[in-house]
């Protein structure tokens, strides 16, 4: 098990969120969509220019930008 930032995740890789390190509006937006510690996510794909990223969370799909994903720490299996 190791901790990485969400940006570094590969397509179809899964992991568990360990921390969301941002406050303010961005932090609130991230959390209200269910991206909170303990949630399991899978990277579903990336946009044609590699950014934003599409995630599978709680059975639905969310998108966020890479620089927003930088605030999210994930624990993944090696």
């Amino acid at each position: 098990m190791s901790k990485i930032l969400m940006r570094q995740m590969a397509k179809n890789q899964s992991g568990t969120i360990t921390a969301v390190k941002v406050g303010g509006e961005l932090g609130r937006r991230i959390r209200e969509m269910g991206i909170v510690p303990g949630t399991i996510i899978t990277v579903q794909g990336r946009a044609p220019l590699n950014d934003p990223v599409a995630l599978r969370v709680m059975g639905g799909t969310l998108t966020l930008r890479n620089n927003e994903a930088d605030h999210i720490e994930i624990e993944v299996e090696d």
């Binding site: 937006r29 991230i30 991206i35 998108t63 927003e68």
Partner: peptide, 9 residues
Amino acid sequence: TPFIMEMPP
């Protein structure tokens, strides 16, 4: 504005 968005089915 944060881009976090739902992709509805």
